Amino acid sequence: MNASSRTRVAVNGYGVIGKRVADAVVRQEDMELAGVSDISADWRSRIVTQKGYRLYGAASEHAEAMQNAGLAVAGTLEDLLGAADVVVDCTPKRVAAKNVDLYRQKGVKFIVQGGEKHAVTGHSFVAEASYKDALGRDSTRVVSCNTTSIVRTLTALKHAGLLRRARGTLLRRATDPWESHLGGIMNTLVPEPEIPSHQGPDAQSVDPALDVVTMAVKVPETLAHLHYWAVQLTRAADKEEILDAFRSSPRIALIRMADGLTAINTVKELMADLGRPHDNLYEVALWADMLKVEGDELFYAYMVDNQAIVIPETIDAIRALAGHVQDPHESIATTNAALGIGLLTEALGGR
């Protein structure tokens, strides 16, 4: 593809999501990374320049601190926005909402993450559910890791005509592994104070027709989230029909305890063995041999990698806003091929 026809993407914020988004962008043939903006002048920004990415300071004082630290700085965030078609805001929760005015002032389309409210953009994104609604928009919000998994799995059942209503319990990791020395919880469980927890209503921001209720509790580990779901189907079904519905989504990987994938740490180890960067699990990893159907009731469990699952969704959201790819299936297939999504299913014998 001609470089001039590629979508120029800026990444604002180089944390656990931002660095994965930047790496994913450079793997897309129809995109180019315009640069990365951040506030730090420590090892994280040094990694940006070592990878050959253009580094920008979020403001002039940040750019100056980076220069004083010996880093090559291309300018400020405002300079970066002048060289971009779309900016992906990966700054901490509630910071992105403050950046929106600048993005609009500069005439740059923008994507925020699930830590922001739906009202910031008026649109919430999961590729298999709301890609077409995002086409040509000025902005969208890629929903949180847990909400992404909920919409993926329930949309697969919905498309198969099997979903009536769903009730889920979420065991949420306490914090990101890289900052577990700063906080987290030990020797306790912390229930989310309201039922439904926020993930259910958030899923309805993507698809208002979903009848879904969630409950959540933080647990003292940092590897991944674990979900348990009880779903009432529209009719009685057998297990294989349910598995076929989940197989219809290329971003749901059916795993088996019988293969030794008996816990979330073993799945993460498999990601490392597959050569995934940062051990990324982009898919929902759903235990096929645990899944149970009783008449019109379905019970299943799956794992969510909160640092990775939203990355392919973000890439698809960039394409939707750019408007060059109209078909969601085409974008999803392109993203999946670039990120190696599907290799997990292949490694497990194509289940």
Rank of each mutant, 00 (worst) to 15 (best):
P208F: 10
Y282K: 05
A258F: 00
M290C: 05
L286R: 10
W287T: 13
E221D: 12
A236T: 15
L226D: 01
H278R: 08
A272E: 07
V217I: 13
P277M: 01
Y282D: 04
K268F: 02
Y228V: 13
K239A: 06
A237V: 09
L291E: 07
L270Q: 12
W287D: 06
I309F: 05
E221P: 00
G295F: 03
V231D: 00
I242Q: 09
A224N: 09
D244Q: 15
A272R: 11
A236K: 13
A253M: 05
A301R: 15
L254T: 08
A230M: 04
H225L: 12
G260D: 03
A285I: 03
I264P: 09
L226A: 11
K268I: 03
I264G: 06
V219N: 03
A230Q: 13
A230L: 01
V304G: 05
M257T: 02
E241P: 07
A258V: 02
D273S: 09
V212M: 10
R247H: 13
V213Q: 09
P277V: 10
A224V: 06
K292A: 14
A245Q: 05
E297I: 00
L223R: 10
L291F: 12
L298I: 08
G295Q: 06
D259W: 03
W287E: 07
H278G: 00
M271S: 00
E297G: 04
Y302K: 03
Y228F: 15
L261P: 00
I309E: 03
I255Q: 08
A245C: 10
T214M: 13
P312H: 12
R256Q: 12
A237C: 06
R256H: 11
K292I: 12
L261F: 03
M257L: 02
D238T: 11
F299A: 13
A237S: 14
L233T: 05
T266Q: 14
L210W: 05
A285P: 10
L291G: 06
K292N: 14
A285N: 11
G260L: 02
P312R: 13
H227R: 04
V304W: 02
A258T: 10
L291P: 03
R256Y: 05
Q232R: 10
F299T: 08
R235Y: 05
P208Q: 06
I309R: 00
R235T: 03
L291M: 14
A237T: 02
I264T: 04
V212I: 15
I255T: 13
D305V: 07
L226F: 14
L243E: 11
A272K: 09
V231F: 07
V293M: 10
V267P: 00
Y282A: 01
D244T: 13
V212W: 14
N265E: 02
R251H: 07
Y228C: 07
V219E: 10
K268W: 02
L261C: 05
Y300D: 03
T266R: 11
R251F: 07
A253W: 04
Y228E: 09
E269M: 04
A245L: 08
A258R: 12
V217Q: 12
A258S: 15
L243P: 04
W229Y: 14
V267R: 00
T266Y: 03
M303N: 07
A285W: 07
M257N: 13
V213W: 06
A288S: 15
V219A: 14
H227T: 10
D273E: 14
